[in-house]
Design a binder for these strands. Structure first.
Ligand SMILES: [Mn+2]
Ligand SMILES: [Mn+2]
Ligand SMILES: [Zn+2]
Ligand SMILES: [Zn+2]
Lengths: 135, 135
DNA sequence: TAAAACTTGCAACATTATTGCAAATTTAGT
DNA sequence: ACTAAATTTGCAATAATGTTGCAAGTTTTA
């Protein structure tokens, strides 16, 4: 499974990449760099984790999720993102109770009417509140 | 002007707070911590800038703007935000050309229909593209 | 199987942010 | 205006987070 994804993206199949990709496949929510370090323990160097995440983002395997608290989160791309070009335009939900961040893949970010002169290119939207598990 | 704002918020009127508040009043766009350090030069300690920004956010004088690149931006609250409770629910625009971030105070963040079980509390929305000045 | 290509870990460094505490400043009370 | 109390500031130390070059190790290609 993980091997296929890596091969499909023309990446060498290494222990680090397999393990980190596994983590994403096993989770429904998003992961922070710190989460990955926690789960992989002493298995890999910090730098390897940084570089692996960066590679995955570039390849369109995972996408970045902006947060209100200046931390970076990553989640699997379920849409067909490609090298250097992401298509994720769904809303992200942050639960105030369990603190999980979830991709709402079926909730598309609505278009807004901008003031005269502004041309939109890309949008991000985050909604916080109480998730289905915590309600 | 700045003195009034500070007094209204029950804050001591100090050089640092006046200077930093001035910066925000003179700008239409948002400011990063680094911008403030640049403009104030050697005038104040880094720590003072951090604490001042934090205080302003708590008092509802400025609000945080989330970004896609893991940097923190701040902008003046134009709506009537209060201590510990912000009301800013406008869209933020990031220009891909001049790199300025602007509060679109008149563009309200639209409501989205969430999946069953999700209760919304707060929303954030960022749109990037080309701003009116750069078009 | 060997060479080429790529990935990893290490060490060093850079940047950004937080905390405790004493000195300085501002505010409040007389 | 003067003083005491309250608040804010700067400094130093520490922590957290992220980046880079390079040699050694691993994976891929042929
Ligand atoms: Mn997502
Ligand atoms: Mn704003
Ligand atoms: Zn939850
Ligand atoms: Zn612009």
């Amino acid at each position: 499974m993980t091997d296929d994804i890596l091969k499909k993206n023309k990446l060498s199949v290494t222990d680090g990449r397999k393990k980190i990709l596994d983590l994403f496949l096993a989770r429904d929510g998003a992961l922070a760099h710190a989460d990955i370090e926690r789960y992989t323990g002493e298995m890999f160097d910090r730098v390897t984790v940084y570089r692996t995440l960066q590679t995955f983002v570039e390849k369109g395997i995972i996408h970045l999720i902006p947060t209100t608290d200046n931390s970076i989160l990553y989640a699997l791309c379920k849409e067909n993102c490609e090298e250097g070009h992401h298509h994720d335009n769904h809303v992200h939900f942050i639960c105030d109770v369990c603190n999980k961040t979830i991709c709402l893949d079926d909730v598309t970010i609505p278009k807004v009417k901008l003031p005269k002169g502004f041309t939109p290119n890309h949008s991000e939207m985050m909604v916080s509140g109480i998730c289905a598990d915590c309600k």
